[in-house]
Amino acid sequence: MFEYTARMFCWHTSVKMQRITIMLDNLRQHRYISKFPKLIAFLKRTGDGYQQNRKSKILTKSEIDRFLSSADDKEFLMIKVGLILGIAGACRTDELVNLTVDDIEDVGSSLIVKIPNTKTKIPRIFGVTDVRNMLELFRKYLSLRPPHVKRLFLYYKAGKCSSQPVGKNTMGKIPSVVASYLKLPDVACYTGHCLRRSSVTLLADAGVDITTIKRHAGWKSTTVAGGYVENSIENKTKIANQVLVGTTTSAITKTVNVSESNIPSNINFENCTNETFNLNVNK
């Protein structure tokens, strides 16, 4: 009877591993599951191939640029500022919610943003430069806020800010709002963690090292940061070149002395991939 009940329970719950775990915890309170070998075999069969995907989807650079350039400020200005700061600083949802105007310093050519309280207890500082009118968007939003409210993010509608601060749930919906506007598939998969994951992924794809990624995201361990570097497009391309083409990433230095009498009309570079060239001109 006990085995039959367990089978029916699994059948009517679509055999999801999370619910099976709950069932097993309940069973352990009364009997040892090791006494039911057929139940164990059944659970293994039904759970075969199951993968639980908890990771949020990410926004690509082109998608971020498209939203910032095409979305109407009258409706999406607060969303744009949240997107900019979240991506620039790999911010968690609660970090954005708790940001105040005193945490941000406008130095003219950039913004210096301080996050004093983080999940890992490691304060972070990041910058926002004037790319794609990001500073203009921030200053425009700041000018519309009531000056007496310290919290940065306030409810925004029809080009006006209220005095009510934005909560965690609203802030966590920013990625899904962006995805919905861009008509991306699986909008619900763009969770509040999307901004942080997108930021670190863009950094890893740019080819930065693990130490920089750890410092940027405020991680103490290299395990998570290493995963982003491992899975980055830039890193996989580099590995593919090493395996299929035989190219390496070792540095090659070549010095060419050019005088006024033998200045070449042009310089050709062939079969170069991810190379850096330093040109020094001495007069």
Results as ranks from 00 to 15, higher is better:
residue 124 R to P: 11
residue 85 L to N: 03
residue 96 L to Y: 03
residue 158 A to M: 10
residue 213 I to P: 08
residue 190 Y to C: 05
residue 150 K to M: 07
residue 159 G to L: 05
residue 142 L to N: 15
residue 160 K to R: 12
residue 111 L to F: 11
residue 113 V to D: 07
residue 103 D to C: 14
residue 188 A to G: 05
residue 154 L to S: 10
residue 169 N to V: 14
residue 178 V to S: 10
residue 191 T to E: 07
residue 115 I to P: 00
residue 217 A to T: 12
residue 114 K to C: 11
residue 114 K to S: 14
residue 135 L to Y: 08
residue 173 K to T: 14
residue 86 G to D: 06
residue 128 V to T: 11
residue 198 S to N: 07
residue 169 N to Y: 12
residue 213 I to D: 06
residue 197 R to C: 03
residue 214 K to A: 09
residue 134 M to A: 09
residue 194 C to Y: 01
residue 101 V to G: 10
residue 164 Q to F: 12
residue 87 I to R: 00
residue 171 M to F: 02
residue 158 A to G: 06
residue 111 L to R: 09
residue 104 I to A: 02
residue 152 L to Y: 04
residue 160 K to W: 00
residue 133 N to V: 00
residue 146 P to W: 10
residue 196 R to K: 09
residue 85 L to Y: 01
residue 169 N to F: 15
residue 141 Y to E: 13
residue 184 L to F: 00
residue 131 V to P: 01
residue 186 D to K: 14
residue 149 V to G: 03
residue 106 D to E: 07
residue 198 S to F: 07
residue 97 V to G: 01
residue 190 Y to N: 08
residue 215 R to T: 06
residue 149 V to P: 02
residue 135 L to Q: 09
residue 93 T to L: 02
residue 210 I to C: 08
residue 127 G to N: 15
residue 96 L to P: 04
residue 135 L to P: 05
residue 174 I to G: 00
residue 86 G to V: 08
residue 120 T to C: 04
residue 136 E to K: 03
residue 101 V to K: 11
residue 114 K to W: 10
residue 189 C to H: 12
residue 156 Y to H: 10
residue 117 N to L: 07
residue 174 I to K: 00
residue 117 N to W: 02
residue 152 L to A: 08
residue 207 G to W: 09
residue 169 N to H: 14
residue 96 L to S: 04
residue 102 D to W: 05
residue 165 P to C: 02
residue 208 V to P: 12
residue 94 D to E: 08
residue 138 F to T: 01
residue 120 T to R: 13
residue 195 L to K: 00
residue 185 P to S: 15
residue 222 T to W: 06
